[in-house]
Simulated assay, not measured.
Amino acid sequence: MIVIGGEALVDLVPDSATAGGELGPLHPRLGGGPYNVAIALGRLDVPAGFHATLSTDQFGDKLLERLVDSGVSTDLVRRGPEPTTLAVVGLSEDGSARYSFHTEGTAARFVADPGPLSDEVTAVSFGTLGMVLEPGATTYEAVLFREAERGRFVALDPNIRADLIADPAAYRKRFESWLPSVHLLKLSVEDAEWLAGDEDLQSALRRWQQAGPAGLVLTKGADGLTALVGDGELVEVPGVRAQVADTIGAGDTVHAALLAWLHRADALSPEAVRGLTHDQWREALGFAARAAAITVSRPGAEPPTSAELV
């Protein structure tokens, strides 16, 4: 089983019929980076569990219901009276999304440490607001370090939300402290540029990969995916053409699809990832690109099922 730790929230997405410059209806869509990863893994028939706190409000009920319907274990889900985190989404003409978050005092902040995870857990994954919002971020960080020490495969997608990072320098330092315990690092090119700051991007990518990850995957939107592996070799695949409804959940789908591919290849270990050939990396990246293309073709974060990727 792959356990995903991090926030669940509700995206408030503008109605597609709203004229430019006008305020229109906002449609609630269930989401949150780690939540989307868990849903995507469940739909791809990979044993997955979600580790988070969900509100006891109506949004929390629906978030839980969707996890169950997607085949995701909720054994590590706690319910709490705090409200659900909200993200107001703004969409540009090309479907790319920007977010305004409402996080103060919300359920996502108050995750409990479950202690050492059961032996059935083969991998853990973290990212987005789960690694930013306190006190939950410190809890997830402790789980990351502990499970890496216990031999679990660790995946990380920082999925930067810069407006919520009060001290960028401190966050960048904290990010680098995780890398020796991370085995798969997934970044969008925008995230990588923000994390690199004034450093040359290619130098930063190679330094991060050499700090611990067996593989680093960079997403470039319609321009495809690049993996940095081995001693700095690059493996690239082009993007898959799609009619874009919006880009919500695209990167989360990539992250989940990579984990699903590694799971099916029995490669959820740093040694196995380091042993992948370039052809295997191209296959994994291509699978992730096809999955993301389906997600962006639909409004909101609606990852594909295994049947849609046959």
Results as ranks from 00 to 15, higher is better:
residue 83 P to V: 04
residue 150 R to V: 11
residue 95 G to P: 08
residue 189 V to M: 10
residue 291 A to C: 04
residue 280 Q to N: 05
residue 288 A to V: 09
residue 43 R to I: 07
residue 291 A to K: 04
residue 136 G to H: 04
residue 281 W to D: 09
residue 157 D to R: 10
residue 292 A to T: 06
residue 133 L to G: 06
residue 147 E to R: 09
residue 159 N to Q: 09
residue 170 A to I: 09
residue 112 A to Q: 15
residue 31 G to D: 09
residue 302 E to W: 05
residue 239 G to F: 09
residue 78 R to F: 09
residue 42 G to N: 05
residue 289 A to R: 07
residue 307 A to D: 12
residue 180 P to Q: 10
residue 59 F to N: 10
residue 276 L to T: 03
residue 13 V to T: 07
residue 223 D to E: 15
residue 255 H to K: 05
residue 76 L to C: 06
residue 133 L to R: 06
residue 27 H to E: 14
residue 195 L to C: 02
residue 307 A to I: 12
residue 246 D to R: 04
residue 206 R to H: 14
residue 108 A to M: 14
residue 101 F to W: 12
residue 191 D to S: 07
residue 172 R to A: 13
residue 7 E to M: 05
residue 4 I to H: 00
residue 84 T to V: 09
residue 174 R to W: 15
residue 292 A to C: 08
residue 239 G to M: 07
residue 175 F to K: 05
residue 49 G to A: 13
residue 266 D to L: 11
residue 181 S to F: 13
residue 267 A to I: 11
residue 43 R to W: 00
residue 92 S to E: 15
residue 2 I to L: 04
residue 199 E to W: 00
residue 219 T to I: 13
residue 57 D to K: 07
residue 195 L to Y: 02
residue 138 T to F: 03
residue 11 D to F: 00
residue 244 V to T: 14
residue 298 R to I: 06
residue 238 P to W: 00
residue 117 L to D: 01
residue 212 G to M: 10
residue 122 T to G: 13
residue 301 A to K: 05
residue 112 A to M: 11
residue 168 P to F: 07
residue 236 E to P: 00
residue 277 T to H: 06
residue 37 V to F: 01
residue 232 G to K: 09
residue 112 A to E: 15
residue 179 L to R: 08
residue 259 L to C: 03
residue 245 A to E: 08
residue 46 V to N: 00
residue 100 S to P: 00
residue 280 Q to I: 06
residue 48 A to M: 06
residue 185 L to Y: 07
residue 152 R to Q: 08
residue 235 V to W: 06
residue 285 L to F: 10
residue 132 V to Y: 05
residue 191 D to H: 04
residue 207 R to Q: 09
residue 56 T to A: 08
residue 238 P to K: 02
residue 190 E to Q: 08
residue 144 L to S: 07
residue 138 T to V: 08
residue 6 G to I: 01
residue 74 T to A: 04
residue 151 G to E: 11
residue 36 N to C: 10
residue 15 D to V: 12
residue 17 A to N: 12
residue 61 D to K: 10
residue 298 R to A: 03
residue 286 G to W: 05
residue 101 F to G: 09
residue 265 A to F: 12
residue 20 G to P: 02
residue 256 A to R: 01
residue 258 L to Q: 01
residue 25 P to W: 13
residue 150 R to N: 12
residue 35 Y to A: 06
residue 165 I to L: 03
residue 66 R to K: 14
residue 37 V to H: 02
residue 284 A to Q: 04
residue 89 V to H: 04
residue 279 D to T: 10
residue 210 Q to C: 09
residue 232 G to C: 11
residue 161 R to V: 13
residue 143 V to T: 05
residue 264 R to D: 14
residue 161 R to E: 08
residue 154 V to Q: 00
residue 264 R to K: 14
residue 133 L to K: 08
residue 218 L to Y: 12
residue 128 T to Y: 01
residue 207 R to H: 07
residue 3 V to F: 03
residue 190 E to T: 11
residue 99 Y to D: 10
residue 235 V to L: 07
residue 162 A to Y: 06
residue 172 R to V: 13
residue 309 L to W: 05
residue 227 A to I: 05
residue 188 S to E: 10
residue 21 G to K: 13
residue 212 G to W: 02
residue 40 A to P: 03
residue 35 Y to N: 04
residue 114 P to H: 02
residue 180 P to L: 14
residue 90 G to Q: 15
residue 170 A to D: 15
